[in-house]
Computed example of a mutant assay.
Amino acid sequence: MTASEPRSYSPAGPAAPVVSLATPGDYLQLLKPRVMSLVIFTALVGMVAAPGPVGNWPLALLSLLAIAVGAGASGALNMWWDADIDAVMERTKGRPIPSGRVPRAEAAAFGGLLSLLSVWLLALSGVGYLAAALLAFTIFFYVVVYSMGLKRSTPQNIVIGGLAGALPPAVGWAAVTGEAPLAAWLLVAVIFFWTPPHFWALSLLKSADYEAAGIPMMPNVRGAEHTRKLIWWYSLLLAPLAVLPALTQAASWLYAATAVLGGAEFLRRAWHVRKGGRDSAPGSLFGFSILYLFGLFAALLIEHWAGLHG
Rank of each mutant, 00 (worst) to 15 (best):
L150F: 07
V69R: 11
R91F: 01
R7L: 10
A105G: 09
G276V: 06
D84Q: 01
L44H: 03
D86G: 10
A68K: 10
I191L: 14
G310N: 13
A208K: 12
G172M: 04
A270P: 04
A105R: 14
A281D: 15
F192E: 03
V18F: 09
N56C: 11
E179F: 06
A16N: 10
N157G: 00
L116P: 12
R101Y: 09
G72K: 04
A298I: 14
D86R: 11
F140N: 11
L293T: 01
G276N: 11
V190L: 08
A208S: 15
S99W: 05
A136Y: 00
W81C: 06
L130N: 10
A183R: 12
P169E: 07
L124D: 02
V88L: 05
D82L: 07
L77W: 00
L296V: 12
G172H: 04
A22P: 02
V54M: 00
A224W: 07
L121E: 02
W194A: 01
F141G: 10
A170M: 09
T177F: 00
L38T: 14
L267C: 04
A83V: 15
T248H: 02
R152T: 04
P33M: 07
L182R: 14
A256L: 09
I290L: 11
W232G: 11
H309N: 05
P33Y: 07
E106L: 04
A105H: 08
S74M: 05
V45P: 08
Q29I: 15
L186C: 10
A83W: 01
V48S: 02
G128C: 03
S284M: 01
A83M: 09
A133S: 14
A281C: 00
A123L: 00
P245E: 13
G112H: 04
V188A: 09
I67S: 13
I40K: 08
G214K: 12
A3K: 03
H198M: 02
W232M: 12
V88C: 03
M218Q: 02
L237V: 14
L182G: 15
V69M: 00
V35G: 02
I67D: 02
G277I: 10
L116E: 11
G161I: 01
R7N: 07
V190G: 07
P168R: 07
V45M: 12
I302C: 06
P24D: 09
A3D: 15
H198W: 06
G178Y: 03
P17E: 13
N78A: 03
K206S: 14
S63Q: 08
T258Y: 01
K206P: 04
H304G: 03
F110S: 05
G162L: 03
G25C: 07
G52I: 08
F192H: 09
L28F: 15
G111C: 08
L30F: 01
S280L: 04
A174K: 09
L230W: 11
F192C: 01
V69N: 03
P240W: 06
V88S: 08
L163G: 02
